[in-house]
Simulated assay, not measured.
Amino acid sequence: MSGPLASLARWAGELAEVTHVWFVDESALQTPPTRAEQPRADVIAVAIPGGPREIDERTWLELLATPHLRIVFTHDVELPALIAEICSAWEPATAPQVVAPDEPGRSLRSRVRSRGSVEILDARAMPRSRRSLLRVAATDETPHTRSTAELVEQIWQLRSREGDAPSPALDLAATGCIACGTCVKACPTQVLALQPPRAPAHPRAHEEAARLDLTYDARGCIGCGTCISLCPVTALSSSGTLAWNAIFSREHHATLEEDSESEVEVLEELTLSRCARCGATFAGAGEFCPACQARMNNPFGSSLPPASWLDRG
């Protein structure tokens, strides 16, 4: 890895035991915080150029792929989208934690520690152990640059070793979707989508335009069930919830390669038709869209026709 934080990523990868690291702004190099402001008694403070919010996605992946690093913040930090998704699936013990200095439950020893300043390490020039330097000198190996896919896979393997845990995400299935888009518009976290297939089954443009996929990204599902309850044709159903390991497995949501989008599950492949009555596109069999078919089946709507009032005594 290259860049201003390469030293930090290398240092994290060489950790031999679980180490809690407090990421602070580089201004702390000039004015270190006091020990009373430190979130944990055993934490190592590291100054990040521009602050933790400036850590890019690639560096985050490098850091999360190390088995012994535990990251601590004293306030909420906005993480890149992919990193936030990964961290939301991890157990609290391994995901980055927000810990206030005055958080209750800390040991008496950490509460009464002196108010002396905290030693700050510079993320651009992290120390190296003598053992790691001797190992590099002896092997003369060039470090392997791992792809994003390799890093995500290693992170998932670390996560899976800690045991599985249930997620709120529904195990959705779809049969008979008419591509009305009700579920897509109603989903509060926008994890459902109607979009053209990524690998068109037909080479001709007009055939490609006649197909849509109903896709589902389980990583953001909160399990509210709004999509199921509002579907006008009851096309969506759920057999329960998914486990985090299933969501982040290679078969479902692993990043394929550099700069690629994460895969999402295709719930149903839809072939579109044009309604012979109103001209709207819809998915399903028949000449008419569901709305037109309903009007034709019941031309008077939900109320009785005017002539029926004449039959009343």
Rank of each mutant, 00 (worst) to 15 (best):
T182A: 14
P203L: 11
P196C: 02
P188V: 08
S129F: 03
G176W: 03
A193V: 01
A205K: 13
I155L: 11
S132V: 12
L151Q: 14
Q195N: 11
R146L: 15
L133S: 12
S147D: 10
R124E: 12
T182D: 11
E162I: 00
M126E: 06
A179Q: 00
C187S: 11
V184D: 05
L158S: 06
R204N: 02
P168F: 07
A209C: 03
E207A: 15
R131P: 00
G163H: 04
S129H: 08
P168M: 03
I178Q: 07
G181Q: 08
R159Y: 10
I155F: 02
L172I: 06
P200N: 05
S147W: 02
H144Y: 07
R204V: 14
H144L: 10
D122R: 02
E162M: 12
Q195H: 07
A174W: 01
A125S: 15
L134D: 11
T142D: 14
R146Y: 10
R161E: 15
A174E: 05
R131G: 00
S129N: 03
R124D: 08
C183F: 05
T139R: 13
I178P: 01
D122F: 06
L172G: 01
E153L: 14
P166R: 09
E162C: 05
A199W: 08
A125R: 11
E141Y: 06
R161Y: 10
P200C: 03
R161L: 14
G181V: 06
R161I: 06
M126R: 11
I178L: 01
P143S: 04
A137W: 06
S167R: 00
E141L: 13
A201E: 15
L134A: 11
D122M: 07
P166N: 02
L170C: 01
S147L: 04
K185Y: 10
L133C: 13
A205Q: 14
C180G: 04
V191M: 05
P168L: 05
R198H: 08
H144A: 12
D171E: 13
V152G: 00
P188Q: 07
Q154L: 14
R204S: 14
S147R: 15
L170E: 01
V191G: 02
A201C: 06
E153D: 15
A169D: 07
L133V: 15
R198G: 07
A137V: 03
L170K: 00
Q190E: 12
A137L: 14
A137D: 05
A123K: 00
E141I: 10
P143E: 09
T139A: 14
V136M: 14
A186H: 00
R161D: 12
E153K: 09
L151D: 06
R128K: 08
I155H: 04
P188F: 03
T142G: 05
A165V: 13
E153S: 15
R204K: 13
A165G: 10
L158E: 04
S160A: 12
Q154H: 12
V136W: 07
P203H: 08
R124Y: 07
T182N: 05
T175A: 13
P200K: 00
G176S: 10
Q154E: 14
E141A: 15
L158D: 00
T148P: 02
P166Y: 10
A179G: 02
L172E: 05
R161K: 12
T189L: 03
V184S: 05
E150T: 04
